[in-house]
Every structure is written in structure tokens, then in C-alpha cells.
Design a protein around this nucleic acid. Structure first.
Lengths: 167, 167
DNA sequence: TATTGTATGTTATAATATACCTGTTAATAA
DNA sequence: TTATTAACAGGTATATTATAACATACAATA
């Protein structure tokens, strides 16, 4: 169970993003049901807002969007609580270098998020690179270090934006 | 030219940290001279504060320490400007997941910072793992992604703190 | 020493995040 | 059904991190 309709955030023109959103929400529903976690309307709405694109979204942008649909009633803690829940359930990741949040592509399997973030368009691809993580863990092992959480974020320029620059 | 007296931040008991500080400042001096960059007293002082330990230090902690020695005159931009300079010169790194700063172990060679950060004691080891970075770049290449900056931060428990827990 | 660019000082404010307290809702037990 | 409890959400204030904007001082060099 993971996001099959997802192709690449770096070819936004060529994938039907509404499918990403629908799938992400369906998976979220299923996982929360399985786990006895409550995907309340608010939490679901925040998840949906985050999934509007493959760009990461700041907490205050989310707040703004919430207020636009709710009549100005939400406050920062409302957003952060929903984000905390979604993070705990593995439904989103936090991008530390941007203080922003992004939907997780395979929330069902515990994993390490590795991100390629385009500085130009903001689109962000989550990678699965188990051998890379294995390398890191091996390095850690050599140091005697017990890894509990990893942050791997590569900033750069996506292929699409590179092609635009060269025009 | 790199920090030879440095052994491991995870064995703080067994290394003479004053040597780390002295070396770091010497190297900073040399590099700045070579490059025609001005390591002013303020910038030097900030670098020295950061090098007080192998733990990363937040901007406002630095500010506080500056004020203690300057008579309360420094303001946030003072610190951030010094930090910007030190970052540009590669003399320090920013730890994105902690919003904090740490001295660089080999500021003379451009490289990618990879950090092991102990959640218990705060000590942080910078790794050189070129093949790991090469892996990442290869992945990026496959995606057609041009990497410009990378953030690799592993949170966990250092060997020293693990041994304490097991007592 | 006049000029110019770099560095610093100063004030205000933006942007991100959390503490704390209060009320509401949902699930379960009596 | 109602009472009880725990999870959830609202709301206010405030902490923490970072930058904008403008003024002044200093240093290099022409």
C-alpha cells in the first residue's frame, strides 16, 4: 500500500496530481483506522492542504489556508497539533532546512526520508535509497552511534527547471 | 591543513579541547588571510564561542555570551551577520534540525557536512564520507537533479551516553 | 584626505513554534 | 442512559529564530 499514481514531482505537467491527493487521503484513512488513530476532519484537512502540491508547505501557510476556509478561526497551535499528529503517524515529513512540511509517499512502511528539493520551483522528491541509509547506519555503527532519526535534504535544481534556464 | 588535534567529540573526556579551539582559530586566520576575507574581532569572537565545545550553539545563545563579554551591546543582526560570514567562509556549518551552528572540522576543503548529533549530550561529530556523498550524487544524477547544497543530519545517541544509560 | 565599500550599531518586526489554560467531543464504564 | 475519562480543539499569550531597514563607524586605496 503506497502511492502508486505518483510518478515524479519533477514532471508535474505530466502527472495527474488529483490522483496523488486522493490516494494519499485514502491511505491515510486506512492506516489510521488500522491503528485506531483518529484522522479527524481538521487533521484530514491539514493533510489535504499539504498534499495540494509536491512543494513543502510552512505551518503558517497552512494556517492561512485553513483560515480562508474556516472563517479566520484557527490559531497556530491548532495547526501544529495537527502537524504533530500527522508526523507521528508518518503521514507527513518535516523539511528541516525549510521549516516546512510535505506529504509522505509511503506512510505505511517506516523509513528514512531523503529529499531532493528544487530551489527554483520548490518541488520536492522523496527518495527511497535503502542502501544509502544502510551506508549511513554502517558509518554510525563504526562510530558506536545509535541513530534514531535522520535528516537528508538535498537542495538543488530539478531537471525541469534546468531545462527552463537553458532556453 | 585541517584540525589534527581533533579526535572525536564523542570522547570529550579524552581529548584536549583547548587544542581544537586554538587550531580552529589558526586555520580560520590563515584561510581568511589567503582569501582576503576579514576575520574581524567580532567574527573571531563568534567563531571562538562556537568552538567552545563540540555542541552546536544557537544564535541567541551566542548573542547572550557576546553580551556577557561586551556589556549588553550586541543585537541579533550582529550575531547573524557574523554567522553569515563564517558560513560563507566554510568555517562553520548550520545544523538545520536544531537551528544552531557548529565549527567546521576541515574548512579548507569544500565538502558536504554530514553530522551525527547526540540527543543526550548534544555533542556533534562531522563525518567525512565521500563515497556516501558520491552515492547521493549518483542518485541525483539518475533523477537529473543538480545538487547544490546538502543537509545530512543523524540524530541519535553517542557511544558515551549509551554507556551511561546502561549503568 | 577624500572616497568608497565593508562592517557594525540600532530599532523594529517578521516568521516559526510552544506553554498553558479552557472548553468540547468521543469512547467507555457504571 | 448517564457519569467518567481521555483525547481533541480553541484561544491567549509568549518564546524562539531570523531579517528588514536605516544610520554610523571604520578601513583600504586612490
Amino acid at each position: 500500500m503506497s502511492l502508486s499514481s505518483y510518478r515524479s514531482p519533477f514532471s508535474e505537467q505530466t502527472h495527474d496530481h488529483s490522483l496523488c491527493i486522493i490516494e494519499a487521503l485514502e491511505i491515510a484513512n486506512k492506516l489510521c483506522t488500522q491503528r485506531g488513530a483518529r484522522l479527524t476532519p481538521l487533521r484530514r484537512q491539514v493533510l489535504e492542504l499539504i498534499w495540494q502540491s509536491h512543494k513543502s508547505l510552512g505551518a503558517y501557510k497552512i494556517l492561512e489556508k485553513l483560515q480562508n476556509t474556516q472563517g479566520g478561526r484557527a490559531a497556530p497551535p491548532t495547526v501544529y497539533r495537527a502537524l504533530d499528529f500527522l508526523l507521528k503517524q508518518g503521514l507527513i515529513h518535516r523539511i528541516a532546512s525549510l521549516n516546512a512540511f510535505i506529504g509522505c509517499l509511503h506512510p505505511d512502511s517506516p523509513h528514512v526520508g531523503q529529499f531532493f528539493i528544487c530551489q527554483t520551483c520548490g518541488n520536492t522528491a522523496e527518495l527511497e535509497a535503502p542502501h544509502l541509509h544502510a551506508d549511513l547506519l554502517q558509518q554510525a555503527h563504526q562510530l558506536g552511534f545509535k541513530v534514531e532519526k535522520s535528516t537528508i535534504e538535498l537542495m538543488g535544481v530539478c531537471p525541469h527547471c534546468q531545462s527552463l534556464v537553458s532556453l
